[in-house]
């Protein structure tokens, strides 16, 4: 599986999902418009004027790979953040480290999230800064990221990589096919379903 495209660097560590999609946009019942809200409050003034943010820079328009720092996507479990990344046109995210829930959310909607060493991430960020129109190539088979200045090793949990390589990242059908095993587990589980005993306080 190859993902190729231009990239945008989002610098800084511990970028949380509240910053990625502010809570007020979570009042929508569907994910449809999440792409418009990505990083909203750090991209726009309250009056709608643009702030200086990489996603607003003309040279990064059309980028499809996001290059980020450490502990990206920390905080809230809101899938809205992963959905916003996908719906804003990103096909992959590469960073130093990711929150578990965010990377799981990305997997379940088909956006691979990969890590690389801090040194190589910094080098890639610098390169993109200097060459915003250059393409990066991510190869999940060889687990490498290639750009003009070199090739870097990237990694992701083997199970996640397998899921993408075999195009089975949407595991729902597989989970469902094991319903007999699930029922067998229910039958031996030491506790039952929810039952109401009393309702007084």
């Amino acid at each position: 599986m190859i993902i190729q495209g231009r990239a945008v660097p989002i610098e800084g560590s511990d970028i949380d999902t509240d910053r990625m999609v502010p809570a007020r946009f979570l009042k929508e019942l569907t994910f449809e418009r999440m792409g418009d809200y990505l990083f909203y409050d750090v991209r726009f003034e309250p009056n709608g004027e643009q702030k200086a943010h990489p996603l607003n820079h003309p040279q990064f328009q059309g980028a499809s790979i996001m290059v980020v720092g450490a502990n990206f996507g920390c905080g809230s479990s809101r899938e809205h953040a992963a959905q916003a990344v996908k719906r804003a046109g990103f096909k992959a995210v590469v960073g130093i480290s990711f929150s578990e829930i965010f990377s799981g959310n990305c997997q379940s909607i088909g956006v691979p999230v990969m890590t690389a060493s801090p040194e190589s991430l910094h080098a890639i960020s610098r390169f993109i800064h200097d060459h915003p129109s250059a393409s990066l190539v991510i190869d999940l088979q060889s687990m490498t990221l290639t750009y003009e200045s070199g090739t870097t090793a990237i990694s992701m949990p083997a199970s996640r990589r397998d899921a993408f390589l075999s195009q089975s990242w949407d595991g729902l059908a597989l989970l469902e096919s094991n319903h007999a095993k699930t029922q067998a587990l229910v039958d031996r589980l030491p506790y039952g379903p929810i039952q109401i005993r009393t309702t007084s306080s």
């Binding site: 083997a158 199970s159 996640r160 595991g171 597989l174 094991n178 095993k181 699930t182």
Partner: peptide, 8 residues
Amino acid sequence: VTTLPNGQ
């Protein structure tokens, strides 16, 4: 329940 083919 089980271990899936991808190891999860």
